[in-house]
């Protein structure tokens, strides 16, 4: 019970951090996933799910009024679900399923953000002819943040419950073995990280440092 309450609290703080306050990036999947795992006493497992989801979230830029999946609360839910369903199938297969679930749940979380923003519109910008005065602005602004807090808690908690149940039911049905699940995750992760190269100027402009990085990474393979 305490673990589920912790998931809700973590979800609330992560949901709030992602846009409203204070954007200190504990809403990043890498951190949020670790906190989701930590709620069940397994932070390392949470970090692994979070890192996989982080790799997918790396290229999403919250620019202007863009609509995007909310990766933080999705990572809390996916990490908690994976840890909670441990033992109901091969660990790596469950990890793959948790990542797929996390990617789907991020979309639902993203939709809840759209609904919240529409609600905020009603709350603080409903009537342009008669906008709220000083005290009203303060109350409504803080009210919008409170709603966001509740939204994050709900999304993370429901996601963890649904994900945990799905993984428990589906985990034993995995038929392709652990190496296949590991291979599929590695392929997806490699493709997604490489997709971030255009953020830094693309291959043509950054080929020298990119290749230098590749060489250093290859050397590290010999060491670890």
């Amino acid at each position: 019970m305490i673990s589920w309450v912790t998931v809700a609290i973590v979800g609330a703080l992560v949901g709030l951090d992602s846009t409203a306050f204070p954007q200190a990036m504990f809403s990043r999947p890498l951190v949020a996933g670790t906190l989701g795992g930590l709620a069940f006493g397994r932070p390392l497992e949470g970090l692994i799910v979070g890192t996989a989801l982080e790799i997918f979230a790396l290229i999403i830029l919250p620019v202007g009024a863009a609509r995007y999946p909310e990766a933080g609360t999705g990572a809390v839910a996916a990490a908690a679900a994976w840890v909670e369903a441990a033992g109901h199938g091969p660990a790596t297969a469950l990890l793959l399923l948790a990542v797929v679930f996390g990617l789907a749940w991020e979309r639902i979380a993203g939709f809840s953000v759209i609904l919240l923003r529409r609600e905020n519109e009603r709350l603080v910008a409903r009537d342009a002819r008669e906008p709220p005065g000083a005290g009203d602005v303060e109350r409504r602004h803080l009210g919008a943040m409170a709603i966001d807090l509740l939204r994050g808690a709900l999304i993370a908690l429901v996601g963890a419950l649904v994900g945990g149940l799905l993984l428990r039911v589906l985990g034993p049905f995995w038929h392709l073995g652990a190496p296949t699940a590991e291979g599929l995750l590695a392929i997806a992760a490699t493709g997604m990280v490489a997709a971030a190269l255009p953020l830094f100027g693309g291959f043509r402009d950054r080929r020298v440092v990119f290749v230098a990085g590749l060489l250093c990474g290859s050397l590290l393979l010999l060491l670890v």
């Binding site: 692994i48 890192t51 996989a52 790799i55 790596t92 990890l95 652990a178 190496p179 590991e182 291979g183 995750l185 590695a186 392929i187 992760a189 490699t190 990280v193 490489a194 971030a196 190269l197 953020l199 830094f200 100027g201 950054r206 440092v209 990119f210 290749v211 230098a212 990085g213 590749l214 060489l215 250093c216 990474g217 290859s218 590290l220 393979l221 670890v224």
Partner: peptide, 30 residues
């Protein structure tokens, strides 16, 4: 930052491609 980012991106690719995310080395075809 774009230079540092491209370097770090190159650095993590071989580690990811060989299965370091799950901690198990992958076979060559993967």
């Amino acid at each position: 930052m774009s230079v540092v980012g491209a370097f770090l991106l190159g650095l993590v690719l071989p580690l990811l491609a060989t299965g370091h995310l799950t901690g198990h080395r992958l076979a060559l075809p993967w």
